[in-house]
Design a protein around this nucleic acid. Sequence first.
DNA 1: ATGAAAGCGCTAACAA
DNA 2: TTGTTAGCGCTTTCAT
Lengths: 340, 340
Amino acid sequence: MTTPPRRPLTLRDVSEASGVSEMTVSRVLRNKGDVSEATRARVQEAAKRLGYVPNKIAGALASSRVNLVAVVIPSLKNMVFPEVLSGISETLETTALQPVVGVTDYGQDKEEKVLFEMLSWRPAGVIVAGLEHSETAQAMLHNAGCPVVEIMDTDGEPIDCCVGISHRRAGRHMAEAIIAQGYRRVGFMGTKMPLDHRARKRFEGFTRALGKAGIEMADQEFYSGGSALAKGREMTAAMLGRTPDLDFLYYSNDMIGAGGLLYLLEKGIDIPGRVGLAGFNGVELLEGLPRRLATTDACRREIGQRAAQMVLARQLDATLASEVVELEPSLDPGDTLLRT
Amino acid sequence: MTTPPRRPLTLRDVSEASGVSEMTVSRVLRNKGDVSEATRARVQEAAKRLGYVPNKIAGALASSRVNLVAVVIPSLKNMVFPEVLSGISETLETTALQPVVGVTDYGQDKEEKVLFEMLSWRPAGVIVAGLEHSETAQAMLHNAGCPVVEIMDTDGEPIDCCVGISHRRAGRHMAEAIIAQGYRRVGFMGTKMPLDHRARKRFEGFTRALGKAGIEMADQEFYSGGSALAKGREMTAAMLGRTPDLDFLYYSNDMIGAGGLLYLLEKGIDIPGRVGLAGFNGVELLEGLPRRLATTDACRREIGQRAAQMVLARQLDATLASEVVELEPSLDPGDTLLRT
DNA sequence: ATGAAAGCGCTAACAA
DNA sequence: TTGTTAGCGCTTTCAT
């Protein structure tokens, strides 16, 4: 690091500093083609000494190769998405590809904007949460000119590749487990529907399965915003207040479920004797709770890994066909579901 | 959307489809210069019909303007960083700038890699967590050729701009509050130090202030990995087992503090009569706990906002000088610190 | 093993 | 208001 330059350095600077043509410098810096050890060393020394950072913009334009994978998710506040991201990152870690994250805040307009923005950088692949997109967004994805992987959900028509779980089935399975345990007065708490398609599908699968067993949902409540843990408390208190004979509470995510659990324990209510509980997601947080909340593991890390692999595979062989993978979420009864 | 093309569309395609020069098409698409309403309409119609997505790579190369702001943080699993990100995003929302996130996993090597990768896209600004970087990383930031904002921490020498809190002072203040309440046998639980400089500085400030009051740390324990909530439980149980006369527990983050709180409540231990507790960060989660854990709010959202503003300001006026802002974290005693 | 020339898709600067 | 001409900094291709 000699004197810091105001103008970013170019290949030409390294070329002049090392007395080697730009072309050869380029080759060295990319470990391409045959270059003698002598020149390679000189070039590397010069590049390092100057503190040269290649300009990927120019490189990408010239080669029409971009090592970015666009990842579009609804939010970072819900721990679920960072976990999917981890799966993606760890899989891409050892490759040349790099994830770039865009957040939609559960909005279709925002999703359009984010997609447009990301696609204008011509990414090597797109990983996007969910199967529901605006017409415009669908069109953009169709014309993306790169592999597209829709993740988290398999209930719908994918544009290209897809990996996730069926939330309808997840809801149904939980309902079946609840019924099998003899619960009959079931309440549901969740996020306001239009915002979250997967939560909505779980709800639908859940209510339908209850219906088939001749059980009608005894009470339900939906929230948005605020501390999920606190909301879980409040909603649980309110619901049990107005429908005291409930014997099971199904929460659309573990966080509100945890809030409910803490509230009921405080009240000294017998779980699951008096009320059974279940959440959804299988988040790490549950491990530290006084009781293990029943939940369904949504395979988040694996979804991320598989999605990244799909993009990678299509990098190597662009002719690969679309691929749809439905993962099997596992129901963990914890300590709040099984009546012994 | 007529027939989906394999080759991405270019300005030329829109130019031909609309019978207007590339240059004018470019102007329309960027709302630049004077263009007649008639041509503007024709161009926009053509662009929309074809489904044209501009190539930012070419645009950036030609204009040497990139609307990306690199944000480099240690992790997404610690809710603190998504919150900082929210502050950044919401501030940039209404501007042309866009955040791009890189994660270092608390590793200096990884930080170097991520920085190099991001800088090679010539971002309009860099926002990076912490003041501790490898020599190489520091050199890169110096030569970045764009505003650099180091965030979260002010205890050290910033490269350019800086906004955060003094973690040493935060630790000291908590110690002073604890001492003022008459606690004398204090235990500390936190993350393994080398990974987290801010936690280390809080610890240092804390122990030093205790020392000045003639109090020596009675016990301490450090963890890494695993569910923070569960670790908080385990460590609390272990520590109280081996040092039963502790009257205060200071946790380096709210999550392990919450675990400790839940554990102690379960054991029926009087809080804060028998043991006082405090965490750090002021995370939303605390609102749903049975008791409000004492904590220090680390101003995360504001840090994000201020950092984004610093980058924005320097976009408009590149001559602006470096700026260092130390925010004042507020100590919230909750229900677990004050002996009434 | 190395170099020279052309051009990736766009925009700045100027001309008309 | 619109068009023309040069590049931006690299990589591809082809020569040497």
